[in-house]
Amino acid sequence: MSPGARWLLVSDLHLDGSDDDPRHAGRMLAGFLRRTVLADLGPQQHIVFLGDTFELADLTEVESLARLESILASHPDTWHALQACSAHGAELHFVSGNHDVELARPSVAARLSELLSPADPALVQVHPWLLYVPNVLLAEHGHLHHALHRIPEVLRTAINGTDELDLPPLAALHAHPTSSRLSRAGAVARACLASERAERRARKPAYDELLQTESRRLTLDGTAVRELARLSRFRTVSALPRTATRMVLASTGRNVNGSQPPAAAGKVAGILENHRSPVAWYISAHTHRALEASLDASPTRYINTGTWSSDVRGQGPDQADRQAFPYAIIEVDDAGVINGGLRYWHPLVV
């Protein structure tokens, strides 16, 4: 990557066909883009949406396309701001999350590019799994390290264009909100079995070929990519108790809190270092807990970009001040020096 670049990363906006969330993530994003990106067009700008940007889960291809257009039409200020960013040469990157995994479908990714950058669709890129910038950062949504949301074969959709995605256990639970407890438990059990089968397929030669294709796209060592893909694994014996715990906590309005990087973070950094591809930053999302921390025995630092929705977790400034919106900024100056960290944007601070 050429020097003089700036990467801005946000996540978990959960934009849908309305603006009912009290934090109004869509409206706030438009202001953020105007003041943070369009007002400063110095270095090459990259705006990264690190998963769960849209509510597209559990839809068919046709439904996903229609929902995507509906969401953007419901947030016209954000849509126009994104178009303005691409018109000024900023690159827009969308990493798939568990709520918008449908972005991995080539047809949906292509439509997103057309909608946000009609003059030059190449300025909009969709990353089904990882965003890798050599020496600088590795970013992913993070749900693939969470058994309840893990989709082992996400590349099968992205590369082969298939319209088949196994429903992870927690998504199966949410897909039947009005069913009886017995029916919901049955749906989760079936999803667990499907995830076990998907894990076995993801360790076979046919999926290795997809991983090699992805390694070429990422320009990252093939063995490293394979190790990253197999770093986490779904196991029913551990996933079912976690699902039950999640259901109990949700019924009482509680969440599991944590103030440390996920266990996978240090392992990701270690894999990259072992394959001589270290990065300054490993960035993920998914937990809705904004966090910046060091990783034991690694020069790589960790950032979680939190959420712009009202479902804020953890003990960060955005918990106390609902007008504080977390984002990561990583800058590479003309000499190749990398700086950055977790920041909070406030719409009332100029």
Rank of each mutant, 00 (worst) to 15 (best):
S2A: 07
P3N: 12
G4I: 06
G4M: 10
W7S: 02
S11F: 15
H14R: 08
D19I: 06
D21C: 04
F32E: 09
L33C: 14
L33I: 14
R34W: 11
Q44M: 10
Q45M: 04
H46I: 02
H46N: 12
L50Y: 11
V62P: 00
E63C: 03
L65D: 05
T78H: 11
L82R: 13
Q83I: 03
C85G: 03
E91Q: 13
L92T: 02
H93C: 07
V101P: 00
A110D: 08
A110M: 02
L112E: 14
E114P: 06
L115E: 09
L116N: 12
A119K: 04
W129I: 06
V133K: 05
N135R: 12
H141W: 04
L144R: 12
L144Y: 10
H146K: 13
L148V: 08
R150H: 06
P152I: 00
L155H: 09
N160D: 14
D166W: 06
P168G: 10
P169L: 15
L173T: 02
L173Q: 08
A175L: 00
S183V: 13
R190F: 13
R190M: 12
R190L: 14
L193R: 07
R197F: 11
R200Y: 08
R203P: 13
P205V: 01
D208K: 07
D208N: 04
Q212N: 02
T213S: 02
D221C: 11
A229L: 07
R230W: 15
L231I: 02
L231C: 09
S232N: 07
T236F: 15
L240W: 13
P241A: 12
T243D: 05
A244H: 03
A244Y: 07
T245C: 05
T252E: 10
N257Y: 11
Q260G: 00
P261R: 03
G266A: 08
L272M: 05
H275N: 08
H275I: 05
S277A: 15
V279P: 05
W281E: 02
Y282A: 01
I283G: 04
A285L: 13
A290F: 15
L295M: 12
A297F: 09
S298D: 08
N304W: 13
T305V: 14
T307N: 03
T307H: 09
W308T: 00
D311S: 01
V312S: 02
G314V: 10
G316D: 03
D318C: 10
F325V: 00
Y327C: 07
I329E: 15
D333T: 00
D334A: 12
G341I: 09
P347M: 08
